[in-house]
């Protein structure tokens, strides 16, 4: 299955307001993606709407978030069910500093329903680092049955390499790198599967990078096994 596991909705302040869950699912289906993960910064609040929209457009969803650890590393926590994503969301939001959103500077943070109707605006800045470390965030993700994947580890900001300087041991299901570096990073980290994704913040970017995973279904256990056995091919 063709998978793009890193897409932001309108809930992320830095993402376009055109990124409604419906638009994401529709664009993903139009581009032939089989599976898409919704990964807003420090929040999974748009996951319920995303579930409905993926059903409507025939796309397999993963529900998750891109957590910002206390070290300011971005990491993906991905779940195959809404209940676990909601628990992760609660754990992360409880550790967000109470910095009010400056929407002029950072953008809006609307929670929407499956039709794009705004239900709520999150008033606390979602881009802040949480008080949870990389190690704690990995442990919690796995406790809740999720896939744990450090984001864009090759980037010069908000990545494991930029913030820590090396890859500490951890329960990584894969490492996400920029498409241009996929080959080099497979050599650098032979013990971990390497994936690429779009990190889309605008509709045009959805599926601009993806990977092909030979998995028998969308359950996390099966996805983890497929990654481990390197049943994957990268497309950029």
């Amino acid at each position: 299955m063709k998978a793009d596991w890193h897409v932001h909705s309108c809930l992320s302040p830095c993402a376009s307001l055109d990124m409604s869950p419906d638009r994401i699912a529709r664009e993903a289906a139009a581009r032939g993606l089989d599976m898409v993960a919704l990964t807003d910064h420090n929040s999974a609040r748009n996951a319920p709407a995303f579930a409905a929209c993926c059903r409507r457009h025939g796309v397999l969803p993963l529900f998750g978030l891109e957590a910002v650890t206390s070290e300011e590393c971005h990491v993906l926590a991905l779940f195959d069910n809404l209940a676990a994503a909601a628990e992760m969301d609660a754990w992360v939001s409880a550790a967000l500093p109470p910095v009010p959103l400056d929407a002029e500077r950072f953008g809006d943070q609307p929670v929407v329903d499956e039709h794009g109707v705004i239900l709520e605006q999150i008033e606390i800045l979602l881009l802040s680092a949480t008080g949870r470390s990389l190690e704690e965030t990995g442990r919690r993700t796995r406790e809740l049955g999720g896939l744990f994947i450090p984001s864009h580890i090759d980037r010069p900001s908000f990545s494991i390499e930029s913030q820590i300087g090396f890859l500490p041991p951890g329960p990584y299901d894969a490492l996400e790198v920029s498409p241009a570096h996929a080959g080099a990073y497979r050599t650098r980290y032979p013990d971990h599967p390497v994936i690429v994704s779009s990190d889309a913040h605008v509709p045009e970017a959805i599926g601009s990078a993806f990977f092909d995973l030979a998995a028998d279904g969308p359950a996390v256990s099966e996805l983890r096994a497929a990654l481990r056995q390197r049943r994957l091919r990268i497309h950029t």
Binding site: E72, P97, S128, A129
Partner: peptide, 8 residues
């Protein structure tokens, strides 16, 4: 070099 620290 930690933006959360700068913010605070």
């Amino acid at each position: 070099d930690l933006l959360s620290d700068v913010m605070a």
